[in-house]
Design a protein around this nucleic acid. Structure first.
Lengths: 147, 147
DNA sequence: GCTGATTGCTCCGTGTACTGATGGTTTCCT
DNA sequence: AGGAAACCATCAGTACACGGAGCAATCAGC
């Protein structure tokens, strides 16, 4: 009776957007390397030798999830995980040469994929969409962090 | 070196948006009932006695995921899952009285949560965001379905 | 320098999400 | 009627995502 129109619910739309993206990624970018894994490689390319917690903040991954994702990348030899000799709690992370190679190859493909993904929108709409999502996400993340 | 700015990548932003939403949901709406579970209850409120496949199309959930989500709702007694006597392949689904009660209570809370979630945007921006996400998601879902 | 608090990581349990394989039903076509 | 095709559901395997508990290392205050 009192059913709601889910298309007016940002959460439902966000989930659909993310699902559709994941699927498109696996066909247009890579089957082996997922989008979060790419985000990790990308962050380590920019800032090598950081620990998991810092990396997690960088790419917005939970501490447990970072551990999982990094473990998979390490298993494939794309990332090195070394205990910090100066602080025995930390794992210092770094992309291997192979990891850097994979990252370089995927950068080009992600750009192609983003064009396909955003194809229904014109240039102004794309810019608007990214900006609005960024603002909402950032505000919600701040609420979380202040808890 | 050649690191990319992830904030220009819709996929990364979509993931952040969805994560932030999930977290906000668990604090403002319900700890027990997740957003996909609510979507299922909502769909069954509007259209009772459909099977899992149809339900999945309605709320955009994979056949396996529908089975999981419905199983959890059934375990909590919010949904009934009966083998269709007319077509032995189908599970006919229906929200129980308790499921309807939970749905009613959550409808009000989701509206409150959506206001908080979209608080950083003005009325026009909200409308724009929902419309643009909807268009991108729909286009990407069509690509998937045509495969 | 000791002690208590903090920090970084791991492990466990739960939920969402997808693919591929399998099996049981129904339907359709000859 | 009988067999092939289509269809629905389930199961196994993998990946992301989170919180809580626990452990080892470090730090801060005295």
């Amino acid at each position: 009776m009192a059913a709601v129109d889910l298309n007016t619910h940002p959460g439902h739309l966000a989930r659909r957007l993310q699902q559709a993206h994941t699927l498109l990624w696996s066909t247009l970018v890579s089957e082996e390397t997922t989008s979060p894994q790419f985000a990790v490689l990308n962050a380590l390319t920019e800032k090598p030798d950081i620990d998991q917690r810092t990396l997690g903040e960088e790419v917005r991954l939970d501490r447990s999830t970072v551990a999982d994702v990094v473990a998979r990348l390490a298993r494939r030899g794309l990332v090195e995980r070394v205990r910090d000799p100066l602080d025995g709690r930390r794992n210092v992370l770094r992309a291997t040469a192979e990891g850097a190679r994979v990252h370089r190859r995927l950068v080009a493909r992600t750009e192609a994929m983003n064009r396909v993904f955003l194809a229904p929108l014109d240039e102004h709409e794309r810019e608007t969409l990214l900006r609005l999502i960024g603002r909402v996400a950032e505000a919600a993340e701040r609420i979380r962090d202040q808890r």
